[in-house]
Design a protein around this nucleic acid. Structure first.
Length: 531
RNA sequence: GGGGCCAUCGUCUAGUGGUUAGGACGGGAGAUUCUCAGUCUUCAAACCGGGGUUCGAUUCCCCGUGGCCCUGCCA
């Protein structure tokens, strides 16, 4: 039975690199008919634990990465929080002590540092002398009498080597002599991560440990612990790390300021900030940025698009397949197709997956994606009101591929009177309305025509405008740009006729009037200055 | 300092002891529509360096270089 796990620390957010690890664990378990577990590595006890855990669970759930055992869902091998498992770690330490695989060590940090310094000066690798190792109860008493306290260290082998087969890297070998007598229990009696990790994996019957490459060098000591505890070590698979945009350096949540200097990263971030601002929310770059999964949920990405991108960050099926449904990825996923080298995070490619996926979302579903954003922005009142839904559906339909991310709907304030007064693109206004000498007259003439068109629908409006320009022997471009700026304030937008239909006759006429007034006032000013 | 892992277009990657080194994102050019978006066509773009092995290395081996990780009473 394949059993994999994801064991995040309660950091308060779900990181892109972390979630990729979770995804691969999930995919492997699902592809093998196994089980996927979620447990919490909270060995350093934090305040506000629940607060720090929630975004992680939310992020996983949003992406559709579900777990069979662990936090919140329970299971037969709990508890699933390290902070609640101290008794098991203590028991493991006692067994290691009893078998000689570990020992109590009374060296002070200073004494240890002196030995390290000595090794450094001599130019050789540091190997602890074990001078303060307690060999007998008498030693314990003697050291204690000197005021020393004990940590527990692993009695690591000093010859031979640790060989294991990594499902991604192949055969790996480490010489035992290079390994340290790692501490597994502090002087204060609390246990350390590596011990806890191995005990948990063993207790929870984890068959495959799939984790980030940074743990590769930690594997020998964990294998040592596992074997000393009398168990078969799990099978390991070390994933390449996720690198920064445009570089091979490891992606870090602490370097957001640096990533913001990357144009692609900055662009995505800015896009997210725009959505947030229009929603009236605030966030700083530390907690809201493209390295954090919550960013994508907030801005309106499709979970499938994000997952698909993540899947290809270090994994490939062949030389051409890029798009995968959940079923396909579960069916095709294999650990031996994971690449060995770091994969750098490319915001542009992630967005490309999103855009492609969004195009496939049917109109009604796309409308549902967009409605909550409009409601939160206060541009509509009731997401369930049939008239509102119908109107938004019409807008989403007219928008077509322009809405690439659900939050993009907030680019179209001009179609929602509740969003406030029309904002004009002043440059476009001048270019299309004030400056051309016939624009004002044409607009004024068309104003009287358009108000009377019935039905006030795209097709009839198109007929009306075409008739209007033909009767004057004009190209449609002579008026259409001015009309767009007058009615939407913008130089670019949806198809003109759909836009007019969405706006409705009253708003169209009123906006043309307002634009005419604004344009005439501008001309007056120019004349006034000239005189 | 010691050890480990890694190295194909800018990015994600495929691939082989002999290939025009393939695809995708991004970029360039062009076409199309009332603008934008989209779509279509098209172009440019890579085997880290040096030694071997071999008839022949991007591929196998060694060295170097670079990146990352471990070397903690952090995880």
């Amino acid at each position: 039975m394949v059993r994999t796990r994801f064991a995040p620390s309660p950091t308060g957010y779900l990181h892109i690199g972390g979630v990729r690890t979770a995804l691969f664990n999930w995919l492997f378990a699902r592809s093998q008919g196994g089980r996927f577990l979620l447990r919490l590595d909270d060995t350093d006890r934090e305040r506000n634990l629940e607060e720090a855990v929630r975004p992680i669970l939310e992020g996983l759930r949003w992406l559709g990465i579900d777990w069979d055992e662990g936090l919140e869902v329970g299971g037969d091998y709990g508890p699933y929080r390290q902070s609640e498992r101290a008794d098991r770690y203590d028991a493991a330490v006692e067994r290691l002590l009893a078998s000689g695989a570990a020992y109590r060590d009374y060296a002070t940090p200073e004494e240890l540092e002196a030995e390290r310094e000595e090794a450094r000066a001599a130019g050789r690798a540091f190997v602890y002398s074990r001078r303060w190792r307690a060999e007998s109860p008498a030693d314990d008493e003697r050291f204690a009498a000197e005021g020393r306290s004990a940590v527990v260290r692993l009695t690591m082998p000093r010859e031979g080597s640790c060989r294991f087969h990594d499902l991604v890297r192949g055969d790996v070998e480490f010489e035992w002599a290079r390994e340290q007598d790692h501490v597994i229990r502090r002087a204060d009696g609390t246990c350390l991560y590596h011990l806890a990790n191995v005990v948990d994996d063993q207790d929870m019957k984890i068959s495959h440990v799939i984790r980030a490459e940074e743990h590769l060098s930690n594997t020998p000591r964990q294998i040592f612990i596992a074997e000393a505890l009398g168990a078969e070590p799990p099978i390991h698979a070390h994933l390449p790390f996720v690198a920064e945009p445009g570089s091979r350096n490891k992606l870090s949540k602490r370097k957001i300021a640096k990533y913001l200097k990357n144009p692609d990263f900055a662009e995505l971030h800015a896009r997210g900030m725009t959505v947030l601002e229009r929603l009236g929310r605030t966030a700083d770059a530390e907690t809201f940025n493209p390295v954090i999964v919550g960013f994508y949920e907030d801005v309106g990405f499709l979970p499938d698009a994000v997952v698909n991108y993540l899947l290809l960050l270090g994994w490939s099926l062949d030389d051409r397949t890029e798009d995968f449904t959940r079923e396909e990825m579960v069916r095709e996923f294999r650990l031996d197709r994971v690449s060995k080298s770091p994969a750098s995070f490319d915001p542009k490619k992630l967005v490309a997956f999103q855009e492609r996926r969004m195009q496939e979302v049917p109109l009604a579903a796309r409308t549902r994606l967009v409605l909550p954003y409009l409601a939160e922005a206060g541009w509509i009142d009731d997401v369930d009101d049939p008239a509102t839904v119908a109107r938004v559906t019409r807008i989403v339909e007219a928008a077509g591929d322009r809405i690439k991310i659900a939050g993009d709907i907030l680019d179209y304030a001009d179609l929602f009177p509740a969003a406030g007064d029309l904002a004009y693109d002043e440059k476009a206004f001048e270019k299309r309305i004030t400056k051309p000498d016939d624009a004002i007259d044409l607009l004024a003439a068309f104003r009287d025509v358009v108000g009377a068109v019935r039905p006030f629908a795209a097709e009839a409006l198109e007929t009306a405008l075409k008739g209007f320009v033909e009767s004057r022997d004009l190209a449609i471009s002579k008026i259409i740009h001015a009309l767009r700026v007058a009615t939407t304030g913008k130089a670019v937008g949806f198809g003109m006729f759909e836009t007019l239909e969405i706006l409705g006759p009253d708003l169209v006429v009123a906006r043309i009037d307002a634009a005419l007034e604004k344009a005439r006032a501008a001309k007056e000013t120019v004349h006034g200055d000239a005189d």
